[in-house]
Design a protein around this nucleic acid. Structure first.
Lengths: 152, 152
DNA sequence: TTATATTAAGACAAATAAGTCTTATATTGA
DNA sequence: TCAATATAAGACTTATTTGTCTTAATATAA
């Protein structure tokens, strides 16, 4: 798996906040978000705490509380979110996990993976919350996970 | 992490077998391999069993036993190994884990990830054990993991 | 100021991945 | 045939990720 589940949840939630936000400092309830996205409330809370610590979101306790974007959505990229949750390793690590892999002492897939990795980084960096959530509305994209029912 | 540890070990071991093999049906000892690559013997054994079950390697018990390539190294690709160990999901799954993501109902990164994923697949498919292990010899590439010493 | 609603924090539990150990099975060579 | 050597198989342990629950802290509004 390329992104952890926590990271994909963080991305979906951020897109949700962006979609629900039409003015600055508009707080979105985590409980409502977890209900609509079908993500466990407590788990989502923990993930969003990472985003607030990384200054991507701000949070407010108490009634009318929730989370809000810390800055205009066009200044928040998917890369920001991925790095905040999964850390930067995806964009620097050797595909085969060989420590010290680099241009001096490359692993057998060093060149190609370095290029592919960079493409990936550019893709994430190019996707801002503004244009992605615009796509979500325009194309009616689904953000929510399927509801988990009993297995029979 | 893109590839599981088991998968990277499987790739390194396959390259090791290819490098040590100079004629057909030449068996390489797993014990010796695990020593030289600094991979736990039992864990490596388990991983290689997947490769023999997928008909990438063949194995022989008893003295002079070990594993050997099941076919000429130019007919074995990294893609074969990745799929044998990690399964095919990496090359078909939605980056955000949304089930049902596809061209009809795309996730917010569907297009770009589909393209990036395909590049990755082509990269793995293009790397045969023959030319990769040739590179390993020509460029003196390291295959082994660092020896794990005590942490102080 | 107090009750209520909400996030923060951290302990705990479950699921999965990684790694270890023991026993069974097959092959070799004396 | 028998002892030694190697992989196969699977039980078991440990580490990490995912998910749940409880309590603390904070903001709102009556």
């Amino acid at each position: 798996m390329v992104l952890s589940k926590a990271c994909t949840y963080g991305i979906l939630a951020s897109l949700y906040v962006a979609r629900e936000t039409h003015q600055e400092n508009e707080f979105v309830s985590i409980r409502q978000m977890s209900d609509e996205l079908n993500i466990s409330f407590h788990f989502l809370t923990k993930i969003l705490q990472k985003l607030t610590k990384s200054n991507i979101l701000i949070s407010l306790k108490g009634p009318k509380g929730g989370v809000a974007l810390s800055r205009p959505p066009k200044l928040i990229t998917m890369l920001d979110i991925v790095i905040a949750i999964d850390g930067p390793d995806l964009f620097s690590e050797c595909l085969l996990g060989l420590p010290g892999c680099g241009s001096q002492k490359p692993c057998p897939v060093h060149e190609q993976w370095t290029a592919a990795r960079e493409d990936l980084r550019i893709m994430f960096q190019g996707k801002t919350l503004a244009d992605t959530s615009h796509d979500v509305e325009a194309l009616n994209l689904r953000l929510s996970l399927p509801k988990m029912e009993n297995k029979w």
